[in-house]
């Protein structure tokens, strides 16, 4: 992709078609002028078959797209469907490409750009291990309480906190824990679902 000068944030909100696979989701003017990078959360419904994740990841790496987070698990065992939630970023033109490229993978049933489709809920789970004594230990517990993190494992030396929330909240929690004896972090990556009565 040719380098273009950075433009100001010109993306208009609210005028978009909800269909992510529709190549016309954004107006040509928007696509042409928007050379800034946006972040999107995209849900992809795929056949749960061997290699499907490799196909999706290979698509992103092969074409140089970003993956900020990716989660996948079977969600409909009866129909053997898995749901992939991928958080990615790019210019509006690249984001349209990402959706179109996902849409043409054979095992893909549906691609939905949750960010564009309307309000949605986004969550991530983290397990955070902190090792400390004295003041630091007390402080860790106090912060965990503020963040509504649960203690799921503990000894005299350590805690394991479980915390669910938006990515930036988890980031903040982890950051606060780091001077307090942070040992280990394990995070699930983002899962997301559209608000309201409709399904994917």
């Amino acid at each position: 992709m040719a380098q273009k000068p950075m433009a100001q944030n010109t993306t208009a909100q609210g005028s978009r078609s909800p269909s992510a696979q529709n190549a016309t989701a954004q107006s040509p003017e928007e696509l042409r002028v928007s050379t800034h990078t946006e972040k999107r959360t995209i849900a992809v419904l795929v056949d749960n078959e061997p290699g499907v994740l490799a196909r999706v990841i290979g698509l992103f790496s092969g074409r140089g797209y970003n993956i900020e987070s990716l989660t996948v698990t079977e969600v409909d065992p009866e129909n053997a469907l898995s749901r992939i939630t991928v958080v990615t970023s790019g210019t509006p033109m690249i984001l349209e490409q990402i959706k179109a490229q996902l849409g043409r993978l054979v095992p893909v049933h549906k691609v939905s750009d949750l960010t564009m489709a309307g309000p949605y809920v986004e969550r991530e789970l983290a397990l955070v291990k902190v090792n400390g004594a004295g003041e630091k230990r007390v402080e860790a517990l106090r912060i965990a309480d503020i963040f509504k993190a649960r203690v799921v494992d503990a000894s005299h030396e350590h805690f394991v906190f479980e915390m669910t929330g938006k990515t930036d909240k988890l980031d903040a929690f982890v950051e606060l824990m780091s001077p307090l004896g942070l040992i280990d972090v394990s995070r699930t990556g983002v899962v997301a679902i559209q608000r309201g009565p409709e399904g994917l």
Binding site: M1, Q21, N22, A23, T24, P28, L31, R32, M93, E96, Q97, A100, Q101, G103, R104
Partner: peptide, 14 residues
């Protein structure tokens, strides 16, 4: 193929 549209050049009527 929707991925051939707006790949390199933005079009007005896809």
């Amino acid at each position: 193929d929707p991925s051939s549209i707006n790949k390199n050049v933005v079009v007005d009527v896809p």
